[in-house]
């Protein structure tokens, strides 16, 4: 079933369009930087964007920083919101369930396919950004970590791979919200918008001092912690928490989706 879901995902034009758009955005930024040579001041703008002008190998990290706050969550919410609601609205859900495919299996397969999408999309961004970054800005044998220690290109690539994994996993909370809503409504768009609303709420709360008590539990709280991978030594504590928090969100939201979907009347 998981294989079938992945095949469905990969044969959708929407999947590839969103991945291309995700890759295109950092590319535009890179071209503008190359043409104008106007990098943001260090400490301003997305992480590492200031360092890219000097060393293209850091561009994948900067590119991920560019798509992370908005574009990646939007793409994920659209794909995950479509997962069940999309099948319901074209009517294929009823044929899937009478095939029969167990409802739990449908949910798990959908989640796994969204996860695959995430890894493919984030990796695509990183790989194209590496190609574009080194082509436009050249590469230096040593890059500067946040802690000032030099990083070899091999180290930068290794850490970027971990960043890819972490960012993909960071999105799983949004994906789970969209998937839950997708089992509640038959409107794929509604599910995606609902998930984005939850995301915006979380982003607003993260910046609010009054919300300090709930901050550690917000899904977006540790999103930017991938930057910690470029410290020396690497600061793992927030990354570990981020992985854990997303895991809890997956379990809880998928639990709700499961409880709702198992005995839901399918009238689509």
């Amino acid at each position: 079933m998981i294989r079938v879901e992945i095949r469905k995902l990969m044969r959708r034009p929407r999947t590839w369009i969103s991945i291309v758009l995700l890759c295109l955005l950092p590319a535009i930024v890179a071209v503008l930087l190359r043409v104008t040579h106007l990098g943001p001041r260090p400490g301003e703008g997305p992480a590492f964007l200031s360092a890219v002008l000097a060393n293209g190998t850091l561009f994948p990290a900067a590119a991920l920083g560019i798509v992370l706050p908005l574009f990646l969550p939007v793409a994920v919410a659209v794909i995950a919101g479509d997962a069940v609601a999309g099948e319901a609205s074209v009517g294929t859900l009823r044929y899937l369930l009478t095939r029969p495919v167990g409802r739990t299996r449908v949910l798990v397969a959908k989640l796994v396919s969204v996860l695959v999408f995430l890894f493919v999309a984030v990796s695509a961004v990183a790989v194209t950004a590496y190609v574009i970054g080194t082509a436009l800005f050249g590469s230096q044998p040593l890059a500067t970590s946040l802690s000032g220690a030099p990083l070899t290109t091999a180290q930068v690539v290794q850490r970027t791979v971990v960043v890819v994994l972490y960012i993909a996993w960071s999105m799983i909370g949004v994906a789970s919200v969209a998937l839950l809503l997708s089992t509640i409504t038959d409107s794929a768009l509604g599910a995606a918008i609902g998930a984005l609303a939850a995301l915006v709420l979380s982003q607003v709360l993260v910046t609010l001092d009054a919300a300090n008590a709930v901050k550690p539990y917000l899904p977006t709280r540790y999103w930017l912690s991938w930057v910690d991978l470029f410290r020396d030594p690497i600061l793992w504590s927030d990354i570990e928490r981020g992985v854990l928090v997303q895991g809890v969100y997956v379990v809880v939201l998928l639990g709700f989706a499961w409880a709702n979907f198992m005995t839901k009347d399918i009238t689509s």
Binding site: M1, R3, V4, R7, K8, R11, R12, P13, V90, G91, T92, R94, Y95, L96, R99, P100, V101
Partner: peptide, 19 residues
């Protein structure tokens, strides 16, 4: 019901592979 962007054959193949 069928996935509109896929051919009839692919639709059937996917349904057959499900479950």
């Amino acid at each position: 019901a069928a996935y509109p962007h896929l051919s009839g054959r692919t639709n059937l193949t996917l349904i057959d592979a499900s479950g």
